[in-house]
């Protein structure tokens, strides 16, 4: 019995740093982010018997945190701010040539079984690394939209950004994440095992 408690504690401890990084990105308040992650770990621990393996452990814990973050973001709507920095386009520009077409060697390649990827915890570890390589404001907008499922109008309201800025940030974020995952995850099929 104790060994299963130890086991779940170890698994929660392992996932904690990434939950914290994600919460910090959304809340810009380290103490509050820490609180939300502690609440999440406690909720996961207390309801561990309901984790019947229907989904990956990490995905399950992440979903608990997600709901806590959305509640907090809604509660603090308009208190959050993020900066839009038009200078952060260097890497983005490297994807396209002067005629605004894909640079040779950076064109998208065919992905093998992309839908199966979300079942792997390792995929999400790489995904998060790609997200945290984005400029902070862009990473926050991207995760609010794609991982917390917040509509763009609400992102504009929460962060005090224009619709146009949010679209530009999402466009850049998606292309960068695409390129990052292609290199780190989807490209590995091409590597001889």
């Amino acid at each position: 019995m104790n060994s299963s408690v130890d086991q779940i504690e170890a698994r929660l401890e392992a996932v904690r740093p990434r939950l914290l990084a994600f919460a910090r990105l959304q809340l810009s308040d380290d103490a509050l982010a820490e609180d939300k992650v502690q609440d999440t770990l406690l909720a996961a621990f207390e309801s561990q018997h309901r984790f019947a393996g229907q989904s990956k452990f990490e995905t399950w814990v992440f979903a608990i945190l997600k709901n806590k973050l959305i509640d907090e973001i809604r509660r603090r709507s308009r208190e959050l701010t993020t900066e839009f920095d038009a200078d952060q386009v260097v890497e983005f520009d490297q994807m396209f040539d002067e005629r605004a077409h894909w640079v040779s060697g950076k064109q998208p390649e065919h992905w093998v079984q992309p839908e199966a990827s979300f079942q792997h915890d390792q995929f999400w570890q790489l995904f998060d690394i790609c997200v945290f390589h984005l400029p902070k404001g862009t990473a926050r907008v991207f995760t609010m939209r794609e991982l917390l499922g917040v509509e763009t109008e609400e992102i504009c309201d929460s962060l005090g950004l224009s619709q146009q800025n949010v679209w530009v940030m999402l466009h850049r974020a998606r292309l960068k994440i695409r390129g990052c995952l292609e290199k780190s995850w989807f490209g590995r099929e091409a590597v001889p095992q």
């Binding site: 894909w102 998208p108 992905w111 794609e146 499922g149 695409r178």
Partner: peptide, 29 residues
């Protein structure tokens, strides 16, 4: 064909993200 490929991938990424985030933690709690 590069943009066609990119378009498919952006949709796939969007769908994968939704699967990560729509896992129903409430019902499990």
């Amino acid at each position: 064909k590069d943009c066609l490929c990119c378009h498919k991938q952006l949709i796939q990424l969007h769908n994968i993200c939704q699967k990560r985030s729509t896992f129903d933690s409430d019902s499990d709690l």
